[in-house]
Design a protein around this nucleic acid. Sequence first.
DNA 1: CTGTTAGCGCGTTCAA
DNA 2: TTGAACGCGCTAACAG
Lengths: 338, 338
Amino acid sequence: MVKLDLKKLAKELNLSPSTVSRALRDSHEISEQTKDRVKELAARLGYQPNPHASSLRQSKSKTIAVIIPEIQNNFFSQILNGVEQVAREKKYHVLIYLTHEDQNRENEILNLLRNGRVDGIMISISNTTSNFEHLEACKASGMPLVFFDRIYDHIRVPRVTSDDEDAAFKATELLIKRGCKNITFLTLSNNLSISKRRQAGYERAMLKYRLVDHLNVLECSANDELNRQKIKEHLLAEQRPDGIFAAIEKFAVNTYEVCNEIGISIPSQLKVISFSNLSASALFAPPLSTVVQPAYTIGQRATEVLFKIIEKKTLLPSDKKITLSSEIIERKSTSGKN
Amino acid sequence: MVKLDLKKLAKELNLSPSTVSRALRDSHEISEQTKDRVKELAARLGYQPNPHASSLRQSKSKTIAVIIPEIQNNFFSQILNGVEQVAREKKYHVLIYLTHEDQNRENEILNLLRNGRVDGIMISISNTTSNFEHLEACKASGMPLVFFDRIYDHIRVPRVTSDDEDAAFKATELLIKRGCKNITFLTLSNNLSISKRRQAGYERAMLKYRLVDHLNVLECSANDELNRQKIKEHLLAEQRPDGIFAAIEKFAVNTYEVCNEIGISIPSQLKVISFSNLSASALFAPPLSTVVQPAYTIGQRATEVLFKIIEKKTLLPSDKKITLSSEIIERKSTSGKN
DNA sequence: CTGTTAGCGCGTTCAA
DNA sequence: TTGAACGCGCTAACAG
């Protein structure tokens, strides 16, 4: 199959390339008749314009980039699902980049995207990111940019998040109402906007119920082995907790593993609730109570806002900061009265 | 920030654009001294070549496409992880497309990729795909193409899969050794290469252990509600099974849900094993025995082969058909002697 | 070792 | 309503 370009199509039709180009793009200055002829042949031969030529000419790539810390996490996969759906409707393509929670990679990726490869970028920031110049520069260069979930507060960029503070408050409150007093909050890293918001919700609940003396925050990492060890020590300590609120699914899993290992019974000895988008958490032993973020919708909404920017539509104030509600699903892991 | 191109860089350096271009690409015909000057300025100004111009000129996009049925599945996310890692090393970009198990989408996507947008394509076929012309055409057009996991046997394209038949045999055998006789195989659709291979393994094991009279295959779908209903009826039937072998994690989850609902106890009344890449299956009640595919490695290897084709290296016979071993992890869901 | 020139394929002037 | 000509930014062929 010899490759097809506008010129060949044009020759075949006894028209000039520009006419064919216009016909295919439904220009009003081409007769219906010609359009039909052109489109018919183009369809029959399966003509597709060369995207690089077209991008070069028009300075737009019909492509957006999604940058996430990891894909191996139901939350981010669901996000990607939402992104893809909206992008597809807009006939856009989606480039995916994983930072693996590494600031350096994040920098490199943003750098790669600086010269027109994409028309816009959506990013959920890595937890090791502590320097934000790369994001400032990206924003400053005029690149359409949207933050989702893990945002950086100090750049004026539209952001789509879930109601982390509130959901964390409710999750903590649930533990308290089920009889917990010594509730430990398992968190990822304090740089992260979401961690802070979740911790704030936890603290607000503890404060409201006069449990400030029992505040306990345990910082975990991406390393399961270390986490299990840390959690194990914590659960075996004198001042051991009767409730665990995990900011991240992974840490709830680690907690379950440790409990299985050292024979702590959930929920009678320890109640557990966690942020999680894993539907299978209903099948855990015992079924895990979860805070479920509207991941798919976050992906959709963030993408919609990105397209508004790309298309230079004016953003409503309600576009600049979108907060979606999480849902708390109570299951056995928080049941009973101690 | 005014945008930067080769010409401006060249003017700044009192060089011609082509010299600058060559210097940046480390051409041997440029003096070290000039290279250094050029690179220094380029780095300082943060120059990135326009990828569309460069792609147009060189007819290569430095981009590959990954087409998968869904992302909401640990197996495919792990694949993507492997793909990304290899692509990144090659300084390639990754476009992601989801077919949502829809042949039409699959066709459309392949069509979109027909004109140089990508240098190569990796695909795991949708389960509704029954016509393969789009793949034939893609292959015929000279596009580098690799199948992974869900392959189409009748096109000569390199393929990377796991040892489905063998793993299914072993999984079935495990159920038999644990005392099961009436083993039902839950499968997705018969079009799929993997379903066929897994079913073949199941049947071979049943044959070997003289249980051919107990062969039972239940076709499930993407619809959880329907699946649960189907499985429920099946588990309540007179000839009810004492073992379930699920070809897909989703169906094991559905089985667990039904068992919870109607009070069938696993493993005492029913043993369950399933293909699954969900690490949390260890936390299920009871922990689920699984056949774990080497997803990350499949992604890596498939991408490596794709790059061999892109780079026109000669493929060894061992590149054309790569089969990786799955691992069976036995847990409580298959324990005991009935 | 470096500069000049041409053209990748398209969309957009401007002219007819 | 159509065609001719130009240039997007880059790299490769050809000179020197």
